[in-house]
């Protein structure tokens, strides 16, 4: 009881702070200096129509490398934590209800389309909303749908690891290529910038985002597969 009172007091205090923040919020009318720089220079410097993508892949490319690394470490740790709980191949399995003909056929119909949508999202990252992270999540959703139809499906961890590490190496390789050929690490101008709005424009951004998409998709898929392979408790 005393505990709950303490929690409520704490939240009231925090609520007071938040109310002060909302009351003191004064909306800007114009962009600040950094945002103005991005708005004015992205089209000439990077050639990407989506300014958010330009920031993520090029202006702050090193942060994205760190982010992908964090995600990789997370997937690896999830695999490590759950490694001992892996279901044995000959362990008794409780009877699973069959997924039914409709869901099976629907999966076979929809999985290729979902994969295609994922590819579309990350290839078009520099023109439309979306990019590697979203596209990767959609690819992992296709894997999820396969797992739903057949919960005992084994997804080859070797293939996932191969895609993942190849994509990681290519990502760093393109970054280093940027130092050699252009202005710095992960500079996209190793390829011609092209015309704003074309699919083959913005230098190396579509390639980098495709690599990120494959890598993120492989990481999320490995997380899902690891969780699906644990034993029932």
């Amino acid at each position: 009881m005393i505990r709950r009172l303490f929690v409520i007091l704490l939240l009231l205090g925090l609520g007071g702070v938040f109310a002060g923040l909302v009351a003191g919020y004064s909306p800007d009318d114009t962009l600040n200096l950094t945002a103005r720089y991005y708005a004015d220079h992205t089209a000439q410097d990077i050639g990407a129509a989506n300014i958010v993508t330009a920031i993520i892949v090029t202006y702050r490319g090193l942060d994205t490398l760190g982010e992908v690394t964090v995600l990789f470490l997370t997937a690896a740790i999830v695999g490590l934590v759950l490694a001992q709980s892996r279901r044995k191949a000959d362990a008794p399995q409780r009877p699973l209800p069959p997924s039914g003909e409709l869901l099976t056929t629907g999966t076979r119909l929809l999985v290729p389309l979902i994969l295609l949508l994922g590819v579309y999202v990350f290839v078009n990252g520099h023109l439309t909303p979306g990019g590697g992270f979203q596209g990767g999540a959609i690819l992992a959703s296709a894997v999820l749908m396969l797992l739903l139809t057949d919960p005992l499906l084994r997804i080859g961890h070797g293939l996932i690891a191969a895609i993942e590490s190849t994509a990681g190496l290519l990502f760093v390789g393109i970054g280093v290529l940027g130092i050699v050929l252009a202005g710095g690490f992960l500079d996209n101008r190793i390829l011609p910038i092209g015309d704003l709005g074309n699919l083959f424009s913005a230098g190396a951004i579509p390639i980098i985002y495709s690599i990120i998409g494959l890598k993120v998709g492989a990481e999320f898929s490995s997380m899902l597969a690891t969780l699906a392979e644990t034993e029932d408790l």
Binding site: P97, L144, L148
Partner: peptide, 10 residues
């Protein structure tokens, strides 16, 4: 996913 969960499909 939720439908498969409530029928204990995985």
């Amino acid at each position: 996913v939720v439908a498969r969960y409530i029928e204990r499909g995985f």
